[in-house]
């Protein structure tokens, strides 16, 4: 938006309170316009694709359990350190087995990094946003709760669990070919690397958009 200096008021305009009258005309006009209110509990908002809401651990349809491999990337990347993982290594194979997977949702800042770095799409942030509670315990999610969150979300939202699992969050600017296998799933066009430019590419596009705006 360009800032334009207002023309100076003439004496007549000052005496007749011209600017106050203008303001009053505006409010009077708004009096008869339709309110923009969304009556929340009655009219709920449909979250956008990729909305970062309630945490969930994806339930693997084959095993019926979480597909988490205890790589600890999520716990490491988490800026607010609200993911707690305990695991042990299976004797012989050395495979990691998750003992505990807790998320303290009240400390989460919903940056979505955990879902971004997960190599197996085990943790997702779902579109559910109504989970305020009267105590802290309710929003301390352990593994069972996180899996239940996923079940409830799939049931409520009607999303195809397989298509939703590859969350649209992938590390921005990373070539899809370098992602871990389970993450290389087809996503809508605007969520691909080409659709989500970062860095110099992004800036150049922005400046083109800006230039267009100025010309208009």
């Amino acid at each position: 938006m360009l800032i334009q200096p207002r023309p100076k008021r003439s004496l007549l305009e000052t005496v007749l309170l011209f600017e106050i009258l203008q303001g009053m005309a505006l409010t009077l006009k708004r009096l008869f316009s339709k309110p923009v209110t969304r009556q929340y509990p009655d009219e709920k908002r449909q979250p956008f694709l990729g909305f970062r809401g309630k945490h969930a651990l994806v339930r693997d349809p084959q095993t019926g359990e979480s597909s988490c491999v205890a790589c600890l990337r999520c716990a490491t990347v988490c800026p607010s350190q609200c993911i707690y993982i305990r695991y042990h290594e299976e004797e012989g194979s050395g495979r990691r087995v998750v003992d505990r997977y807790d998320i303290e949702a009240l400390r989460c800042i919903y940056c979505g990094y955990c879902a971004e770095v997960c190599p197996v799409n085990a943790i997702v942030l779902t579109e559910s946003y109504e989970y305020s509670a009267y105590d802290r315990q309710t929003n301390y999610f352990d593994r069972g709760r996180l899996l239940n969150n996923w079940d409830a979300f799939v049931k409520e939202s009607g999303h195809d669990p397989v298509a939703y699992v590859n969350p649209f969050w992938r590390p921005r600017g990373v070539d899809e070919a370098t992602l871990a296998g389970p993450r290389r799933r087809k996503v809508p066009e605007e969520w691909t690397r080409a659709g989500q430019p970062v860095g110099r590419l992004c800036r150049s596009q922005d400046s083109e958009v800006l230039a267009e705006g100025v010309q208009r």
Binding site: L28, R30, L31, F32, S33, P35, Q39
Partner: peptide, 13 residues
């Protein structure tokens, strides 16, 4: 009500 509608809200409902 008046101020609500002037601010494009609804006021008490």
């Amino acid at each position: 009500k008046v101020i609500g509608h002037m601010q494009v809200r609804m006021g008490p409902t």
